[in-house]
Every structure is written in C-alpha cells, then in structure tokens.
Nucleic acid binder design. Structure first.
Lengths: 179, 179
DNA sequence: CGCGGAATCTTGTCGGTGACAAGATTCCGC
DNA sequence: GCGGAATCTTGTCACCGACAAGATTCCGCG
C-alpha cells in the first residue's frame, strides 16, 4: 500500500496539522514537518493546499463544521449551547486557535464563509429561542462570554482556583448572564 | 548621531514590533525585518532580547503594564473598567494579541508574571467593589465577557451590524451582565 | 587624562522553511 | 490500452532564527 499515490494525503495532513498545532500553536506549524509526519516529500502538501494559508483555510473550514456539529448536538437549551461552545474549544483546541485568527488564512474563501455562517446561525438561533427578544445584543453578549471564557481557559491565563473542568466552570459563568 | 551605538535600540525595536504585529500578526514577525526598520544589522536585536521569544516576552510585559495603566485611568466603576479593557485591546491591538498567547513567549519570566499580576489585581478589584460578593465567579464572568468581546472584535468575526465603535458596543454588551 | 573591561553592534555562517518549477509516476475515462 | 489529468518527487532560491567571532564605543577607576 506504500504506492506512489498516497491516496488520503489531504485528510492525513489536516489531522497531522491538528496534532502539531495543538502541541505548539499555529505559528510553529511547518508544512515540511507535516510532510515528514505523513511520510511524503516536502512539496506534496502544496499540491493539495497551494500554500500554508491554503492549508489553514481548509483547517479553519473544517473547524467551523465541527463547531456546527457540536452546537447541534447540544440541543435547544441556551446554557447547554454555551457549554458546548466551550467544550468544542477545549476538545478541538487547534481548530479553535486558527478559526478566529483570519490573518493566518484566506478569510474570503467561499467554503470557509459558508461554514462560518452555518455555525453562526446555530449560535444566534439558540439565543433567539431563549430570550424571545431581538437577538442581536443578547446573542453578542452570550457569544462574548463563552468565547472569552474559552479563550482565557486555553491561554492558561485563569487562576488555578477555577478548577480543572472547563465545562463545569463555564456553566457557572454563563449562568451569571441570566441573573 | 548615526554612531556605532544606537543608544535607544531596545525601545525602537519594541515600537517597531508593535507596528509590524498590528499589521500582520505575531506569526509574521521577523527579527530581521525589525532590524531593517531600525537601521541596524540583522543580529542586533538578539543582543537585547536573546531571541524571538525574549522580544515577545518583553513586549507582553509592556502590554500588561499598559493594560494596568488603562484600567487605573478608568476609575472605580465596573462598567467603565470593562469598556477600558476593550478600549485597550483595540488601541494596543498588537500587545493584546501577544499577551494571551503564552506559547509565543516565556511565560515563566518574573517581570512578566509581576506585570500580569498587577493588571489582574485591578480587574478583580473592580468587580469586588461592584458586587460586594466573593468576587471569584463574578470576576470570571466579567473578565470573560469583555475579553471575549474584544477578541471577537479584533478577529473581525462580528457582523457589520454591531457598528464601528467598539467601546459603545462593549458598553451595551457588558450591561447585559447586570440585568 | 587614559586604560581596560563591559556593553553594544557587525559580519559571517548554518540548518530549517515556504514557494516555485520541472519532471516522474500513477490513475482513470474513453 | 491510450492519453490526459491527478498526484507526488526532486531541485532550487530567498528568507529567517540562532549562534560565533570580531569591531567599535562607552564608562568606571586610577
């Protein structure tokens, strides 16, 4: 099976990228290192993604799709949706890290824009169901608080006192928005 | 004045870094490009900062000090403190970008830890004065919502409908936490 | 004043990286 | 089973970060 054609390179590279980025961040990502992990030549990745920005565009798109899945699975409850957002960030740290850093990829890519819109709609929908009001300001507040908590958690900026269960801590924090 | 000794290189490099990072993110930062902007040889920056991580450590430390200044100027009101946090992120985008990405610098640097603690104390203090309660959960919620809003704003992920005045929009969002 | 060490900066070099070009190999529709 | 297309390789170039060695300037101390 060690044929000239790898056959599955695109997926393997994306998954290797997830590993590498989770380990040391998108800045340290090297296409040549990915190629080495996949056992192909140093120029093979360029064929599938064009360049580094192309790979990260595909990676971010995959991330927005994964986020949409996670939000759908969380159901209709707004609190659960928020917890799911944080859970996604923790479980798919590498994707989350790239998705909100548009200077790393091509933010005008049509597939990426579509995937981002899908996940955004799920977020806004949850808020609208919960409050009944015009969702703009509420959705923005809800998005901000879960996004902020997730970001701070991932950056390691939170004091140890918060504990080691991000989803439980997130639930407590999100509740403050409804009191 | 074009002497062998530049005399002010350290500060010039930090300010050039702020420009370069604001333009295209910390990932694209190049020590050699900074040296070129400052008019010195390609190896001069290494003398002051050791390596790239050293420069970003100093840069992040400067950022935490600037944040502390901004929070102090905002006064005692919690809402104003939150708005000031967002204002800092927008006005010092480059610093904010680096401060919460510890994989880019040496997070165990003593000066950095001290500066971070100073700004953190100002945040927690504002919350304690406002609620009177045990500040942990409230502070975390307040920090999360302003940090999240600032991050989303900077990433360009927010829809145009939010407007072009980040501090005004932040004020609206933060108010949701107290209603 | 001036000497000598320390601080500051330069030059030169090395391995690693992203991008590109050209060529080799394999796949697949017809 | 032929031929174009897709996939991958090899080779190359400029740029970058890190390091080593040397040049220049500054400054404390006699």
């Amino acid at each position: 099976m060690a044929s000239y054609h790898h056959g599955d390179l695109r997926r393997v590279l994306l998954s290797a990228a997830a590993e590498a980025i989770a380990e040391s961040g998108p800045a340290a990502l090297s296409l040549r290192e990915l190629a080495r992990r996949a056992g192909v030549s140093h120029a093979a990745p360029a064929h599938h993604f064009g360049d580094k920005a192309g790979l990260l565009t595909a990676f971010a798109t995959q991330g927005f799709d994964l986020l949409a899945d996670a939000l759908r699975q969380a159901g209709d409850d707004l609190l659960d949706t928020g917890v799911a957002y944080v859970g996604f960030a923790v479980r798919h740290r590498a994707h989350f890290d790239v998705m909100f850093r548009p200077e790393l990829y091509r933010a005008d890519d049509p597939e990426l824009i579509a995937a981002r819109a899908r996940s955004g709609e799920l977020l806004r929908g949850g808020v609208a169901r919960h409050t009944g009001r015009e969702p703009d300001a509420d959705a923005l507040a809800a998005w901000s608080i879960v996004h902020g908590f997730a970001t701070l958690w991932l950056s390691g900026a939170l004091p140890p006192r918060v504990g080691d269960d991000p989803e439980a801590a997130a639930r407590t924090v999100i509740r403050r928005l409804f009191s």
